[in-house]
Design a protein around this nucleic acid. Structure first.
Lengths: 193, 193
DNA sequence: GAAAACTCTTGATCTAAATCAATAATTCTT
DNA sequence: AAGAATTATTGATTTAGATCAAGAGTTTTC
């Protein structure tokens, strides 16, 4: 149930068996069917989810009703609305399952308590938050400085599994494009090679 | 010298006078003239800088030699290449001063040591990293879902001082636009109101 | 297993932003 | 103070991406 989570944890900050059991006591498991919500706009985000298996997305609804996808999370990644989680303010985003998914959940209260009790947990989430920041910074860099072709190629190399597990129109949304344009970008790339 | 830094720190995590003196012993001050580098591409980023006064920017050079500005930092903000800082890998970015600036510097070694010795420092940088993440996520959201007009208006409300202290062509770079297009966006906005 | 819903591609047209080019205003330099 | 560099605006043209529209292939669903 927690295999990937602790594999991930141990790769970042090594744990003893006892420490692992202690941390495990603060975690719960949640299974979501495709299209089920983890968070809906207006609710306060009270947890951070680690994707053991599956694909999740965080998105907002535009004025015209279009889904603007901000973040994907596949196996081994975290997902939450950090703003709402930290401030306790209602979220402006939705989080739902793109495919049937298995999540390891830690609530805010559990996380706050655990941070005080475990220096290793504290270190773990600090490093994970830093990594998440770096990833977003990379994405900003590619959005403002690369061509569509190069942005798509970058996605392919950085997150090959996302590309293959998520419908193309969601990738288009994630890149801020229409599905038609993404289809043409892909065509241009395959013709070139 | 450290006024703003500790003002900021105390607003986030309150410190006693003794704690403040202790943390201060890990910090140094650096003054940069306009256009001076804090970090150059290829160097390892060995510090995090807090802007006491001034404006800094982080950018990369595109293949065509264009400057792609990823982040600005004015008074009260931090700037670093977090990837290089954490991994010790050479940076792909430049950081320089947009105007004469006064920085509070903490080196990697000082930061690592201080994190172990001060739970409050640990908490401070955790919260600051989280805030930085949230800011980038907001920016991604606006890039993929808003019109240029709305993106510029958002910048105006979120960072009014940046707009007024930084040349417009740098704002254009930061938004991933040409200076001409930004000039026209601004014109459209002023005509509307 | 047929109908409905979703997914992707392709074409034609329109529109917004980039590019090219010129000019004026401002600020550095020496 | 004069010349050079930087900065911002505006116009004309080109180009990349959005929009509108249709169709074919897949997957869901009942």
């Amino acid at each position: 149930m927690f295999e990937r989570y602790f594999q991930h944890f141990n790769e970042t900050v090594p744990l003893t068996a006892a420490e692992q059991e202690f941390i495990k006591s603060y975690l719960t498991v949640k299974k979501l069917r495709k299209r089920q919500y983890l968070l809906q706009e207006g609710d306060v985000c009270n947890c951070v989810a680690f994707v053991e298996k599956g694909v999740m997305r965080l998105y907002r609804l535009g004025d015209d009703g279009a889904e603007n996808i901000i973040v994907f999370a596949t196996d081994g990644y975290f997902i939450t609305d950090l703003y709402s989680f930290i401030t306790n303010e209602p979220s402006g985003y939705h989080i739902d399952a793109v495919e049937d998914s298995e999540l390891v959940i830690i609530t805010r209260s559990a996380s706050d308590e655990l941070r005080k009790l475990s220096a290793k947990y504290q270190e773990f989430i600090f490093l994970k938050t830093s990594e998440a920041y770096i990833q977003l910074e990379r994405r900003i860099t590619s959005v403002i400085s690369l061509s569509l072709e190069d942005r798509y190629k970058e996605l392919l190399t950085n997150f090959p599994d996302i590309i293959h597990r998520v419908p193309q129109h969601m990738i288009a949304s994630y890149m801020g494009l229409t599905p038609e344009t993404l289809s043409r970008v892909r065509k241009r790339i395959t013709i070139q090679n």
